Computed example of a mutant assay.
Amino acid sequence: MDAPAAIRNQRGPGVLALQWGDAEAVISHARLRGACPCSQCRAARLQGRVSLVSDDVRIERVVAQGYGVQLVFSDGHERGIYPWQYLRDLG
Protein backbone atom coordinates (compact mmCIF):
# COMPACT_ATOMS: atom_id res chain seq x y z
CA MET A 1 0.00 0.00 0.00
CA ASP A 2 1.28 3.44 -0.91
CA ALA A 3 1.53 6.35 1.47
CA PRO A 4 -1.33 8.84 1.49
CA ALA A 5 -0.90 11.98 -0.60
CA ALA A 6 -1.28 14.17 2.50
CA ILE A 7 -1.37 13.79 6.29
CA ARG A 8 -2.73 16.53 8.54
CA ASN A 9 -2.48 16.30 12.30
CA GLN A 10 -5.25 18.54 13.66
CA ARG A 11 -4.49 18.91 17.36
CA GLY A 12 -7.42 21.21 18.17
CA PRO A 13 -10.17 18.75 17.29
CA GLY A 14 -7.82 15.81 17.95
CA VAL A 15 -7.95 14.09 14.56
CA LEU A 16 -5.49 12.78 12.01
CA ALA A 17 -6.65 13.34 8.43
CA LEU A 18 -5.16 11.15 5.69
CA GLN A 19 -5.82 11.94 2.03
CA TRP A 20 -5.69 8.81 -0.12
CA GLY A 21 -6.09 8.95 -3.90
CA ASP A 22 -9.73 7.89 -3.73
CA ALA A 23 -10.84 8.94 -0.24
CA GLU A 24 -10.05 10.86 2.91
CA ALA A 25 -9.91 9.18 6.31
CA VAL A 26 -10.33 11.22 9.49
CA ILE A 27 -9.43 9.28 12.63
CA SER A 28 -9.56 10.60 16.19
CA HIS A 29 -6.36 10.66 18.21
CA ALA A 30 -8.09 8.65 20.97
CA ARG A 31 -9.09 5.92 18.49
CA LEU A 32 -5.55 5.75 17.14
CA ARG A 33 -4.10 5.52 20.66
CA GLY A 34 -6.59 2.78 21.58
CA ALA A 35 -5.72 0.81 18.44
CA CYS A 36 -1.95 1.05 18.91
CA PRO A 37 -0.33 -1.86 17.02
CA CYS A 38 2.76 -2.15 19.24
CA SER A 39 3.44 -5.54 20.80
CA GLN A 40 2.58 -4.43 24.35
CA CYS A 41 -0.79 -2.95 23.38
CA ARG A 42 -1.69 -5.92 21.16
CA ALA A 43 -0.78 -8.38 23.92
CA ALA A 44 -2.96 -6.47 26.40
CA ARG A 45 -5.92 -6.58 23.99
CA LEU A 46 -5.41 -10.31 23.38
CA GLN A 47 -5.42 -10.90 27.15
CA GLY A 48 -8.74 -9.07 27.38
CA ARG A 49 -7.37 -6.05 29.19
CA VAL A 50 -9.18 -2.91 28.17
CA SER A 51 -7.05 0.20 28.09
CA LEU A 52 -9.10 3.33 28.66
CA VAL A 53 -7.87 6.18 26.51
CA SER A 54 -8.66 9.73 27.51
CA ASP A 55 -10.54 11.78 24.92
CA ASP A 56 -8.00 14.55 25.39
CA VAL A 57 -4.97 12.47 24.31
CA ARG A 58 -3.25 14.14 21.37
CA ILE A 59 -0.69 13.19 18.78
CA GLU A 60 2.40 15.28 19.47
CA ARG A 61 4.46 14.13 16.47
CA VAL A 62 4.05 12.09 13.30
CA VAL A 63 7.32 10.43 12.26
CA ALA A 64 7.58 8.86 8.79
CA GLN A 65 8.79 5.26 8.80
CA GLY A 66 8.56 4.41 5.09
CA TYR A 67 5.80 1.79 5.28
CA GLY A 68 3.79 3.85 7.77
CA VAL A 69 4.14 6.36 10.58
CA GLN A 70 5.17 6.34 14.21
CA LEU A 71 2.76 8.35 16.31
CA VAL A 72 3.98 10.05 19.48
CA PHE A 73 1.12 10.70 21.91
CA SER A 74 0.72 13.27 24.66
CA ASP A 75 0.49 10.47 27.25
CA GLY A 76 4.09 9.52 26.41
CA HIS A 77 3.28 6.42 24.35
CA GLU A 78 5.41 6.21 21.19
CA ARG A 79 6.02 2.52 20.52
CA GLY A 80 3.50 1.89 17.76
CA ILE A 81 4.25 2.11 14.08
CA TYR A 82 1.04 2.32 12.08
CA PRO A 83 1.38 0.79 8.58
CA TRP A 84 -0.48 2.56 5.78
CA GLN A 85 -2.94 -0.31 5.28
CA TYR A 86 -3.72 -0.42 9.01
CA LEU A 87 -4.49 3.32 8.97
CA ARG A 88 -6.64 2.91 5.89
CA ASP A 89 -8.57 0.09 7.57
CA LEU A 90 -9.06 2.18 10.75
CA GLY A 91 -10.43 5.07 8.71
Results as ranks from 00 to 15, higher is better:
residue 1 M to Y: 13
residue 2 D to C: 04
residue 3 A to M: 12
residue 3 A to C: 11
residue 3 A to K: 15
residue 4 P to I: 12
residue 5 A to T: 09
residue 5 A to K: 15
residue 8 R to T: 15
residue 8 R to C: 07
residue 9 N to E: 03
residue 10 Q to L: 04
residue 11 R to K: 12
residue 11 R to N: 06
residue 12 G to V: 10
residue 12 G to K: 09
residue 13 P to A: 11
residue 14 G to E: 08
residue 15 V to I: 15
residue 15 V to P: 07
residue 18 L to H: 11
residue 20 W to K: 01
residue 20 W to Y: 02
residue 20 W to C: 00
residue 22 D to F: 08
residue 23 A to Y: 07
residue 23 A to R: 15
residue 23 A to F: 10
residue 24 E to Y: 08
residue 25 A to W: 11
residue 25 A to L: 10
residue 25 A to N: 15
residue 26 V to D: 08
residue 29 H to N: 06
residue 29 H to M: 08
residue 31 R to W: 00
residue 31 R to H: 05
residue 32 L to S: 05
residue 33 R to W: 10
residue 34 G to S: 09
residue 37 P to V: 01
residue 38 C to Y: 08
residue 39 S to H: 08
residue 40 Q to S: 13
residue 43 A to G: 07
residue 44 A to Q: 14
residue 46 L to K: 12
residue 47 Q to M: 13
residue 47 Q to H: 13
residue 50 V to Y: 11
residue 50 V to T: 13
residue 51 S to Y: 03
residue 53 V to P: 01
residue 54 S to T: 09
residue 56 D to R: 12
residue 58 R to K: 15
residue 60 E to M: 09
residue 60 E to P: 04
residue 61 R to W: 11
residue 61 R to L: 09
residue 62 V to N: 08
residue 62 V to W: 05
residue 63 V to Y: 03
residue 65 Q to K: 05
residue 69 V to I: 03
residue 70 Q to K: 09
residue 71 L to R: 02
residue 71 L to P: 03
residue 75 D to A: 09
residue 76 G to H: 06
residue 78 E to N: 07
residue 78 E to K: 05
residue 80 G to I: 00
residue 80 G to V: 01
residue 81 I to N: 07
residue 82 Y to F: 14
residue 83 P to H: 00
residue 83 P to L: 00
residue 83 P to T: 00
residue 84 W to F: 15
residue 88 R to P: 05
residue 90 L to H: 08
